[in-house]
């Protein structure tokens, strides 16, 4: 029997190869990022977006980019009839971690592209790149964990495309709230030390939330995957 690491590696490789062949997820994420940022830039044409508004808008865009693309990795397995083969070849934990790693990388890349476009189009500055990167990293972990889990739950349900978003978004909103608090400070201006400390606390909370989401997900995923 293969080690769990080999199985996780195989799942990540399979996802990456499938993605490179079809380019569905990355293309959809990139297009979504572009459309969202253009829509925001158009809606705020000739106006300055303040930092509170900017952090909220950016996180909402990241959230919806994640909800649109991430559950697909589970849903397509069922639609293409490959899920049973995957069930036979890999342990549920390996499938979960493999899909989460792939989803995490995908949403992290999408978030950075989206943020880059957002800051470019809206002329909002970034004062603390470190805090911003940690915020996106923690957010990506949480988004990947929850969206993968929700994708597995809705994969064989009716109206799964809509349902994936409907059940994933409420679980992800606490994460978005923490992300917005951290991003608000990262965008700046940082007027005092205590403001920066509050941002650091929010980002640490976000990273812990992401880790907790992954930890709970791996315990629960096998029940959804095997049934």
């Amino acid at each position: 029997m293969n080690s769990i690491w080999a199985e996780i590696g195989a799942v990540v490789r399979k996802e990456a190869l499938t993605e490179m062949r079809a380019r569905n997820g990355i293309a959809t994420s990139a297009l979504f990022a572009l459309v969202t940022v253009v829509a925001i830039a158009l809606a705020t044409f000739n106006r300055t977006i303040d930092k509170d508004m900017a952090s909220g808008l950016l996180w909402v865009a990241i959230l919806f980019a994640a909800v649109i693309t991430l559950p697909r990795v589970m849903v397509t397995e069922e639609e293409q009839g490959t899920a049973d083969l995957l069930r036979m070849l890999a342990r549920p934990e390996a499938v979960y971690w493999g899909k989460c790693i792939f989803n995490g990388c995908q949403i992290m890349a999408a978030s950075f592209i989206l943020s880059f476009l957002f800051f470019g189009f809206t002329h909002v500055g970034l004062e603390s790149p470190g805090l911003f990167a940690l915020s996106v990293f923690g957010g990506s972990m949480g988004l990947a964990g929850s969206a993968t889990m929700c994708g597995a739950l809705v994969a064989r349900a009716a109206n799964r495309a809509m349902l994936a978003g409907a059940i994933a978004v409420p679980l992800l909103l606490p994460l978005v709230a923490l992300g917005v608090s951290g991003m608000r400070v990262a965008i700046g201006p940082i007027e005092a030390d205590f403001v920066y400390d509050a941002g650091v606390r929010a980002v640490i909370g976000l990273d812990c939330y992401g880790i907790a989401t992954l930890a709970i997900g791996v315990l629960i995923f096998p029940f959804a995957w095997k049934s």
Binding site: S146, M149, C150, L153, V154, R156, A157, A158, N159, R160, L163, A166, I167, V169, P170, L171, I216, G217, I220, F221, F223, A224, S227
Partner: peptide, 27 residues
């Protein structure tokens, strides 16, 4: 409400029970 939406979208009783239990614990 999402929990109830999930329950309502799965026809098979066993799958409905396991998926909604998993979702509840995750939530």
């Amino acid at each position: 409400f999402a929990y109830f939406a999930l329950r309502g979208s799965i026809g098979d009783e066993t799958r409905k029970a396991s998926h909604s239990a998993a979702y509840y614990l995750a939530a």
